[in-house]
């Protein structure tokens, strides 16, 4: 038995080598073409991964990444001993969980609703207009928010005053920052995110609808028993990906929406990394904070993937 196993292993090895050799001979030009993209990934993705070791060093420009002295967990300790740390973690988590709670279910609702109505001008217009905001840049979205919410000349306050309400400085209130951020995000991406669910719904076997009809199922029952099970795998994958990105969320937009008055809720880990690292040039400390953020992300991704695999039978890997 053992001998035959060894033999088959040996054969496999030989065929592998053979396949490799044939592939190199046949495709050598393609391998040469790939050098450039591979270099790109090494330089701009893998080198920064290794560069993250400066979180455990006192990086200085003169000595560089390799020569700078090791300091162990110093930067992490400094961060966690700072009372700001817990506010940052709290702000980051609250903002991302709130965002997930709103922007994850909305596209599913939109897709299910669109799937119920007949093809026609109305359906196509809804799709065209709901996708549109996705293509607007972050800077422009934030400018629109600032212009429309401005306490002096913003349209929202003008309308509120017209019906007798007091003007509110929306962006100047820490308590409103999360609502503004999350709902403007929902405004921008709901339509676009619905596409993937619509595609999944388009793949549902028509016979299932017929069967549901013959059984006398109502529209709602049909959605519940046919549509939702059909898009479940897609829902699970999107959920895993969203949770995996939980702590890396919309940071460029958060930064633009920040002002001294709303920092209490709008300062998140990533904006802090940017300020400490790029503006204050405290590279090692900022890298440590960033690394902490990425690791939380990775752990969340792994946990959610495991749960998804247990519960629904499909995961990312």
């Amino acid at each position: 038995m053992d001998q035959s196993l060894d033999q088959s292993k040996e054969i496999k090895k030989v065929t592998q080598r053979h396949l490799a050799k044939r592939s190199f001979q046949r495709h050598w030009q393609l391998y040469i073409l790939m050098i450039l993209p591979v270099l790109y990934f090494i330089i701009f993705k893998y080198v920064p991964m290794l560069g993250a070791v400066i979180a455990f060093k006192d990086y200085n420009v003169v000595q560089g990444i390799i020569e700078s002295p090791w300091v162990g967990w110093k930067h992490f300790e400094n961060f966690f001993n700072n009372p700001v740390a817990w506010d940052l973690i709290k702000n980051t988590l609250f903002l991302s969980l709130y965002q997930l709670a709103v922007t994850f279910p909305l596209p599913i609702l939109l897709a299910l609703a669109l799937n119920e109505i007949r093809d026609g001008i109305f359906k196509r217009s809804v799709q065209m207009f709901t996708y549109a905001p996705y293509f607007i840049s972050t800077v422009v979205i934030v400018s629109m928010i600032i212009l429309m919410l401005s306490p002096r000349s913003g349209i929202i306050n003008t309308l509120m005053e017209a019906v007798g309400l007091d003007a509110v400085n929306f962006l100047g209130q820490a308590s409103m920052f999360r609502d503004i951020f999350v709902w403007s995000d929902a405004w921008q991406i709901t339509g676009y995110s619905a596409i993937i669910y619509l595609a999944a719904l388009a793949g549902v076997d028509k016979q299932q609808y017929e069967a549901a009809k013959i059984d006398g199922a109502s529209r709602l029952q049909k959605i519940w028993n046919v549509d939702i099970p059909a898009i479940m795998p897609t829902i699970v994958i999107i959920l895993i990906l969203s949770v995996g990105n939980l702590m890396a969320i919309g940071f460029e937009k958060v930064y633009l929406l920040q002002n001294p008055l709303n920092l209490g809720t709008s300062e998140i880990l990533q904006t802090y990394v940017y300020k400490m690292g790029i503006i204050n040039a405290d590279f090692s400390f900022a890298t440590a904070v960033g690394l902490f953020n990425s690791i939380i992300n990775l752990i969340l991704l792994i946990i959610v993937n495991e749960i998804a695999k247990k519960v629904s039978g499909n995961g990312l890997w």
Partner: peptide, 14 residues
């Protein structure tokens, strides 16, 4: 590279 992210600062240093 989708799973592991070096971070803003290491990328900036590169």
């Amino acid at each position: 590279t989708m799973l592991f992210y070096g971070g803003l600062i290491p990328e900036y240093l590169v």
